[in-house]
């Protein structure tokens, strides 16, 4: 075990938000044979980076993300966030944004955002203030009293992001958050997410199926292959920020997307 002091580093600037994945493997014991879901995955993510995991279905990208969130245990290897290993969910270090329909329909938007704080017994007034700030950050000021069924798909995901950010963790993990949205909303939400990321300086790990989304959002794209789940490429996206719609049709963008696609086609 690491000493407890490492959980909240004394020099936050140095390590807060850094993610280190070391020789992580996951084996599912099957009836006839064992299935290797992740095979010796190692990876280092520097604080404040926007990293996207892509790969075909079954490559274990969501599994890897769930391990970073402490929601799953790997068979072998270690995952370290902000300098201390992740053994169980730790909302101080990691906020998670799930796919659509993860909001509680019986709570209003602000109560949903306050949920993580309510679990820890934060006083009502402080909770409300933090939720208001988070909702403002995601562009939903004034929508706090609405229930999820009164919000559009994009707005619901904004609430989810606000919920992930409300405790101000250095790392935000996002599991295909825009997969259920239509194309236009998805583009808008991508820009919104980049704005929020720039404003907060979080480390973001983002899982997606969309290659365009991957290149558009990322500083780095990690490409995985299926059966067994492995990292086959780690690209640096050098496109300038802020990213614009025009870049999508540029040569640099196309080259990166093609490179990812060739990996995925091979593996699928």
């Amino acid at each position: 075990m690491q000493p407890l002091a490492n959980v909240t580093p004394l020099k936050p600037a140095a390590r807060a938000g850094a993610i280190e994945v070391k020789n992580v493997g996951q084996v599912f014991r099957g009836r006839s044979q064992d299935v290797v879901a992740l095979d010796d995955v190692s990876l280092e993510i520097k604080p404040g980076r926007f990293v996207v995991l892509v790969g075909p279905s079954g490559c274990g990208k969501s599994t890897l993300l769930m391990m970073m969130a402490g929601l799953r245990q790997q068979t072998t290897g270690t995952i370290t966030i902000s300098g201390a290993p992740i053994l169980q969910p730790d909302p101080d270090r990691v906020g998670v944004v799930f796919q659509e329909a993860s909001l509680f329909p019986w709570l209003t938007a602000e109560d949903n955002v306050e949920f993580p704080l309510a679990l820890r017994g934060v006083p009502k007034a402080e909770r409300r203030a933090k939720a208001q700030d988070a909702l403002k950050l995601v562009g939903l000021e004034g929508f706090g009293k609405r229930h999820p069924h009164e919000l559009s798909g994009g707005m619901k995901q904004r609430v989810s992001i606000a919920r992930g950010l409300v405790q101000d963790p250095p790392v935000l993990l996002m599991d295909e958050p825009f997969a259920a949205l239509d194309e236009q909303t998805r583009m808008t939400m991508g820009d919104e997410l980049l704005r929020i990321w720039a404003a907060t300086g979080k480390t973001v790990v983002f899982v997606t199926h969309s290659l365009t989304e991957a290149v558009y959002l990322a500083d780095e794209v990690i490409v995985m292959s299926a059966r067994p789940g492995r990292i086959v490429d780690h690209l640096q996206v050098q496109l300038p920020r802020p990213r614009t719609y025009e870049m999508l049709s540029g040569d640099a963008f196309g080259a990166l997307r093609d490179r990812i696609w060739r990996h995925i086609r091979k593996s699928a």
Partner: peptide, 15 residues
């Protein structure tokens, strides 16, 4: 009861 909701609660450390 939705599995997603249980996962959310777990990820925020619910008892």
């Amino acid at each position: 009861v939705k599995v997603e909701h249980l996962t959310v609660a777990r990820s925020y450390g619910a008892t």
